[in-house]
């Protein structure tokens, strides 16, 4: 499209300007927090994927599996596993919500809020289901 040169004028005259406060003052709606957590859980699972690929190599090589098992079964390993599973379910649920948005569903403001609110609970439900499944 065409290139529109900026209207000159006001901006050139002012001697001094400052940036107005943004992240510091904005009261982020729930959607924005869910979006931020979607990003954080996604970044965490980039590491998780690295770990999973490493474990697969351990299984393929047939060496070091007992050590990996011990690490996963240790108290810290268990805590990390549960958090990772929760993060994965969170990213899954939030991602599902985004896919629905992409198809044009769920945009009316009340639905948006209910959907945002549901994400952490769906993630909790998924984690709980998995927990009971594994016994």
């Amino acid at each position: 499209m065409n290139d529109h040169s900026p209207p000159e004028g006001m901006s050139a005259q002012s001697p001094r300007r400052v940036l107005s406060p943004h992240l510091q003052v904005y009261r982020l709606p729930l959607n924005a927090w869910i979006s931020l957590l979607h990003r954080i859980t996604g970044l965490l699972w980039c590491l998780g994927l690295l770990g999973a690929t490493g474990l697969l190599w351990v299984v393929a090589a047939g060496q070091g599996w007992p050590a990996a098992q011990a690490a996963l079964g240790s108290p810290w390993g268990r805590v990390a596993s549960i958090l990772a599973i929760y993060a994965l379910w969170f990213h899954w649920a939030s991602g599902l919500r985004h896919l629905l948005f992409d198809f044009g569903f769920g945009f009316a403001a009340p639905v948006v809020r209910v959907g945002a609110w549901a994400v952490p609970w769906v993630a909790l439900l998924g984690t709980g289901l998995l927990w009971s499944w594994m016994g």
């Binding site: 900026p6 209207p7 006001m10 300007r17 400052v18 940036l19 107005s20 943004h22 003052v25």
Partner: peptide, 24 residues
């Protein structure tokens, strides 16, 4: 009640921000 200018804009004066980029 806290009244601030629109966020992350260059402030011209008080609550008046430069929106020329927005219009471009």
């Amino acid at each position: 009640i806290r009244v601030l200018p629109l966020p992350h804009r260059p402030v011209i004066r008080d609550l008046i921000t430069d929106l020329s980029q927005f219009y471009r």
